[in-house]
Design a protein around this nucleic acid. Structure first.
Lengths: 168, 168
DNA sequence: TTAAACTTTCAAAAATAAATGAAAGATTAT
DNA sequence: ATAATCTTTCATTTATTTTTGAAAGTTTAA
């Protein structure tokens, strides 16, 4: 397999994985393209490499910047904007975790907290089932949350070294 | 807030979270409904509670069974099938992790492994960027994989008690 | 100021995913 | 065997998400 083919495979695989996890396929593909590009690329180049429209490229790049995965660069004497992807896998994982936590986990935890407080007849099996399911899920969600918080605070990349060692 | 309203809120929140994570909204809602139901429900009841069609209810319930989150029950003297959701949050989390690992992570790890092997000119910065990104991501994916494997093997619910204690 | 170079927006179109419901397929009771 | 009851399928419809591309907006240079 040669480099060009391998790049395409990588972009395709990354796009598929993204779409299975609720991330726009194109966004994941643009990210993949930038990840394997040693130099920053222009909008034109992204458009050409992935055969997407200007509007799509622009919006996708903006989203990637919002996620903290890509940054704009300016070359002296040039008016075009260049886009460069953060290459440190650990930072990428953290940014994604951080963003999804904020957008999705936090709101759900809030609702679960409220639902945990709902009062009802303790003899009523419908109430009991509701309350215990919600309480359990709430507890799990809060634990995931705490774990993420600590992980997000960790400065270094402990994952590669340590986390799976705690399981024997 | 009363029980009926709380149930709706829970079903809605669960559905939204599901859809943000690549799980069909209806599937997550049916799961939520069954989770807070002390008794197993029939297809008719699911249809009525969520205002969905027979076909949709049937396929969704079948999917939930495939994921190992719901089981069919038969009541003696009755011909109807009843559906009951596993209530143990820990088991639910494990089943979901297991299924997604199998469907999504495993295939990607395989491809990444292949791409790691791609040979090229070590002086070429395009090759260097490709190789190092792919290698890093591959390593992260393999670590996630190992962690999940161990987690899936763990019999008891260590998550609630131990995992986040390792971070100080 | 004007024009060239580049970026952003957004209504409309296209692509994709999910839901419907009628019909076909099973299963059980009589 | 056949009718009643219940389950499954799948071609069509509907809803949702994503993409397009032309027009409007911005910035810089002369």
């Amino acid at each position: 397999m040669e480099l060009a083919e391998a790049k395409l495979k990588f972009i395709e695989a990354w796009g598929k994985l993204g779409s299975e996890w609720g991330i726009n396929r194109t966004m994941a593909q643009v990210h993949a393209l930038l990840l394997v590009s040693p130099e920053a690329l222009t909008t034109e180049e992204v458009m050409a490499e992935l055969s997407i429209s200007r509007g799509n490229a622009n919006m996708t790049l903006r989203d990637l910047i919002d996620w903290g995965l890509v940054e704009k660069q300016h070359k002296t004497g040039e008016r075009k904007e260049y886009f460069y992807a953060e290459k440190d896998t650990w930072i990428i994982a953290r940014r994604v975790a951080e963003e999804r936590k904020k957008r999705e986990l936090d709101p759900v935890i809030k609702i679960l907290g409220q639902l945990t407080e709902v009062k009802g007849d303790k003899k009523d099996s419908a109430y009991k089932a509701f309350h215990s399911s919600v309480t359990d899920i709430s507890r799990l969600a809060n634990n995931v949350n705490k774990t993420l918080d600590t992980m997000l605070k960790a400065e270094e990349n402990w994952f590669f070294g340590s986390i799976f060692k705690i399981f024997k």
